[in-house]
Amino acid sequence: MEREDFDFKNFEKEAIKKLQVGEPLEGADGVLAPLLKRLFNASLEGELDAHLKTGKEKNRKNGKGSKKLKTSFGEVEIDKPRGRNSTFSGLFNFISSAPSY
């Protein structure tokens, strides 16, 4: 599976433009939403890769499901990867929302 490259330079330029015209930093349509989505998706992919390597039974990747994660920055839609044997849960199944700092 190919990983989508994230253009940080373009993100920074677009984020600054959006903030200058008054768009929110937080929330589903906030300036940080694309970056948060990228970070959460990368984290889940890494977790699944580790799970598949350490599993005792034969297993493999089996697509993704769309989920909404509540964070202190608002809701972020993520693409939660699945394993064929449904033995992968990932960190985000254990938390209903990220802690507020």
Rank of each mutant, 00 (worst) to 15 (best):
M1Q: 15
E2K: 15
E4S: 05
E4P: 01
D5E: 09
F6V: 11
F8S: 08
F8P: 03
N10K: 13
E12D: 02
E12T: 10
E12I: 14
K13V: 07
E14Y: 08
E14S: 10
A15R: 06
A15G: 09
K17A: 11
L19A: 13
L19K: 02
Q20M: 13
G22P: 10
E23N: 10
E23G: 05
E23F: 07
P24W: 03
E26S: 04
G27L: 00
D29W: 02
L32H: 05
A33N: 01
A33E: 05
L35P: 00
L39Y: 03
F40A: 06
N41A: 05
N41M: 00
A42I: 01
S43N: 04
L44T: 02
E45L: 04
E45M: 06
G46W: 03
E47Q: 07
E47W: 01
A50V: 13
A50N: 07
H51V: 10
H51M: 09
K53F: 08
K53A: 09
G55M: 04
K58E: 14
K58N: 06
N59V: 06
N59K: 03
R60A: 12
R60I: 13
K61N: 11
K61P: 07
K61C: 12
N62M: 09
N62T: 01
N62L: 04
N62K: 14
K64D: 12
K64E: 12
G65T: 14
S66H: 12
K67T: 03
K67R: 14
K67Y: 15
K68D: 12
K68N: 12
L69I: 15
T71L: 03
E75K: 14
E75D: 15
E75R: 12
V76G: 04
E77L: 14
E77D: 11
E77W: 08
D79M: 12
P81M: 01
P81N: 03
G83N: 05
G83Y: 03
R84M: 09
R84C: 09
R84I: 06
S86P: 07
T87I: 08
T87Q: 07
F88Y: 09
F88N: 00
F88H: 00
S89N: 15
L91W: 14
F92E: 09
N93W: 11
S96K: 15
S96T: 10
S96H: 14
A98W: 07
A98H: 07
P99K: 14
S100F: 14
